[in-house]
């Protein structure tokens, strides 16, 4: 990494941290933990009749602390694989992933990772509140009821806390999934196309909601999406990936402040960002 890049990264992390000054001291403490570093990571696996199929090839990027990194790339390029590697659910064949000074596997064992999957996967027998509390049950942690209440308030579901998932719309389920991922106050939030199945209006609403939540909590986030507009709207740093095996085509920073992004979708700067990403994807 060049000196200029390092300086930019530091500046970026300072900006994002400044945006989260309204967060609690505990949150501010977690913000200082460090950046997510994907360091020359490769991953290959053995398919039934083909050993060593490469899914990820020499991927290298950094998501600064408290920033939102977005992975964009064609379908099946290995974005979700990269996300799973970042979560420590799989080990890279080559290279290294670190969050601050520790590995994702250690971070996961310390229950400091939140993961929202493509499918909300809510449990039908639990109410909305109990679904959000699930990570505490699974991680054998005491339930922080006031934080759960706060989270439900943030995602706009406090009125629905005692309802079952079957009574919710698709957008509401995704919000529950997001709240569940944030329940244990993770230092690293990983989102695998969480809004992929939603209509445009709901998606747009949830995008802004996500930005608001992340700014409030100061959580470092890595998100996978297919949508270039969504990437520009959400991302502080966007990583454009090639088709399988995925390599980094472009690392693109969006310097605009998060709270101004909702209204900036028709601006020249926004369109320029989109154009740059599209060009990289098409290249």
């Amino acid at each position: 990494m060049s000196v200029a890049e390092s300086e930019h990264e530091v500046q970026m992390s300072i900006d994002v941290t400044a945006a989260a000054t309204a967060a609690s001291p505990k949150v501010r403490a977690t913000i200082r933990e460090g950046a997510l570093r994907i360091d020359a990571v490769s991953y290959s696996y053995d398919s039934g009749h083909q050993p060593g199929v490469a899914a990820v090839d020499d991927v290298d990027f950094v998501v600064p602390r408290g920033a939102l990194g977005v992975l964009v790339g064609p379908s099946g390029c290995g974005k979700s694989t990269l996300l799973r590697l970042a979560a420590g659910l799989m080990e890279p064949t080559l290279g290294r992933i670190a969050f601050g000074t520790i590995t994702p596997a250690e971070l996961r064992k310390q229950r400091r990772i939140g993961f929202a999957f493509q499918d909300p996967g809510l449990l039908s027998w639990r109410s909305v509140r109990r679904n959000v509390e699930l990570p505490f049950d699974l991680a054998k942690l005491p339930i922080d009821r006031s934080w759960i209440g706060e989270l439900l308030e943030i995602v706009g579901l406090s009125e629905w806390a005692d309802r079952r998932p079957r009574e919710l719309s698709g957008g509401m389920r995704q919000r529950v999934s997001l709240a569940r991922a944030l329940a244990t106050r993770p230092d690293l939030l990983l989102l695998d196309e969480p809004f992929g199945a939603l209509d445009e209006i709901t998606r747009s609403e949830l995008n802004l909601e996500l930005l608001r939540i992340l700014s409030a909590t100061g959580t470092t986030c890595l998100l996978v999406t297919h949508s270039v507009e969504e990437a520009v709207l959400l991302g502080d740093r966007i990583v454009v990936l090639s088709s399988r095996p995925c390599t980094v085509k472009l690392v693109h920073d969006v310097p605009e402040a998060r709270d101004a992004r909702g209204a900036s979708r028709d601006t020249v700067a926004f369109l320029d960002h989109c154009r740059a990403l599209r060009a990289a994807l098409a290249a």
Partner: peptide
């Protein structure tokens, strides 16, 4: 392998 693994359950 997803939710359970994330929280090392």
């Amino acid at each position: 392998d997803e939710l359970g693994a994330v929280y090392a359950t």
